[in-house]
């Protein structure tokens, strides 16, 4: 069987994590190619439905990257996102998906290193968890 390569979706806030990802690039900091970034104007824009849709389509892991606490460009979008993530995690458990597959992280625009580190850590975590139950169901 082919080695399991997780597919991970990162919803990145334009003002922090997306910029941090650019910075990681310009500093040539490597991180796993498994992570695919979707740019959003604020982590608070990330819909519960989009997260579920990602899993439904076969994502092995999803993370939402917003600004550091208190740094949200729109006052409190990151806090709202964090609350929503907690809620979606509970829902995931109910439908039989490990809640560890979904994470909320925060960083500032200057943290290129943290972006690369987070992407690496989350990829490794998901790799250990193995393919998402939904993906297994689809491929069977």
């Amino acid at each position: 069987m082919k080695k399991f390569e997780p597919v991970i979706v990162a919803f990145c806030c334009h003002y922090c994590a997306y910029t941090a990802a650019d910075m990681a690039g310009s500093q040539r900091l490597p991180y796993p190619a498994n992570v695919k970034i979707i740019r959003v104007p604020c982590s608070g824009k990330v819909d519960a439905l989009h997260i579920i849709k990602a899993f439904e389509n076969g994502a092995d892991g999803v993370y939402v990257a917003g600004c550091l606490e208190g740094d949200c460009h729109f006052k409190n979008g990151n806090e709202k996102a964090a609350r929503r993530i907690d809620y979606v995690k509970k829902y995931l458990e109910e439908i039989g998906i490990e809640s560890e597959r979904l994470t909320m992280v925060t960083m500032s625009a200057g943290m290129g290193y943290r972006f690369a580190q987070t992407a690496t850590e989350i990829t490794e975590k998901i790799r250990k968890l193995g393919p998402s139950p939904i993906k297994t169901a689809i491929t069977q």
């Binding site: 104007p41 604020c42 608070g44 824009k45 819909d47 849709k53 990602a54 389509n57």
Partner: peptide, 30 residues
Amino acid sequence: CGMCVSECPAKAIQLMQFEDDKILAQLEEI
């Protein structure tokens, strides 16, 4: 910021430039 968009239970609001169907389309491609 789109916060109203993600909270609206009826999906009656769309944020221009970051419309839901654009995000969902990207997800499909991955």
